[in-house]
């Protein structure tokens, strides 16, 4: 198989959200076909450039994002595509060694102390993995100290904080304060969750507010561009 058709198949598989051979894909026609991970493995076997595969991941997820925003895709369709990329990334990553400049960066995410909501956080986490970020998820009900300790250890480029309650969103401010006290100022803090807002983000000194998962992807791209002066 030539390299171009191999990349096209990967793109189609991601857009269809075809995780593995048992999955029927968005249009219901793909059961029994090799999954995205298998296609990526095959492509690497025939020496397709890993960088080109990574580009296909990004292009495909952009396409999926558009399909979601247009209303054609529902949330689980987008999550299926993100899962394809997330799984395939594990296979691709070792082949990208030495090409660190292409990594989008590390993202640490948590739902703050006192808050047990995890649906939104999990969606953001899956979508960001699909968009090529290395994501570490600390879970729900995570204390300020645990978050700060994880930042020190994981050294993320971005920290995402989620809160769904007006009573717990104040924890976000405590995290930012504690990071400053600890002298950590090279991590960008993004917040999200129903009661939060742009104004709230400004008020507590966060670097950004994200309305939903796709907004988070866009926001991160903007920040990357600003950082690299593009």
């Amino acid at each position: 198989m030539n390299q171009e058709s191999s990349l096209d198949r990967i793109r189609h598989s991601i857009v269809m959200g075809h995780v593995d051979e048992n999955d029927e894909g968005f249009d219901g026609t793909m059961e029994g076909e090799p999954g995205t991970v298998d296609l990526v493995r095959e492509a690497l076997d025939v020496d397709v450039n890993p960088q080109e595969i990574l580009n296909i991941f990004n292009e495909s997820m952009e396409e999926v994002g558009k399909l979601f925003e247009s209303g054609k895709y529902l949330l689980p369709d987008m999550l299926a595509s993100a899962e394809c990329v997330g799984n395939a990334m594990d296979i691709l990553e070792p082949h990208l060694v030495g090409k660190q400049e292409n990594q989008k960066g590390k993202f640490l995410i948590a739902t703050v102390k006192g808050d047990l909501h995890d649906i939104g956080k999990n969606i953001v986490s899956t979508i960001l993995k699909g968009a090529g970020y290395q994501v570490k998820d600390l879970g729900i009900d995570v204390s300020v100290n645990d978050i700060v300790a994880a930042v020190k250890e994981f050294k993320p480029d971005f920290l995402g904080l989620s809160a769904l309650l007006t009573t717990t969103m104040t924890e976000m401010e405590a995290v930012i304060k504690k990071l400053k006290e600890a002298g950590i100022n090279d991590v960008k803090v993004l917040i999200g969750g129903a009661p939060t807002s742009e104004e709230f983000a400004l008020k507590i000194g966060a670097d950004g507010y994200c309305r939903d998962a796709l907004h988070a992807v866009a926001k991160l791209e903007q920040m990357q561009d600003a950082l690299s002066g593009r």
């Binding site: 999955d23 249009d27 999550l79």
Partner: peptide, 11 residues
């Protein structure tokens, strides 16, 4: 119904 595929297709 993994990824709610059957539901969304029927929809």
């Amino acid at each position: 119904d993994r990824f709610c595929r059957k539901f969304s297709r029927a929809y």
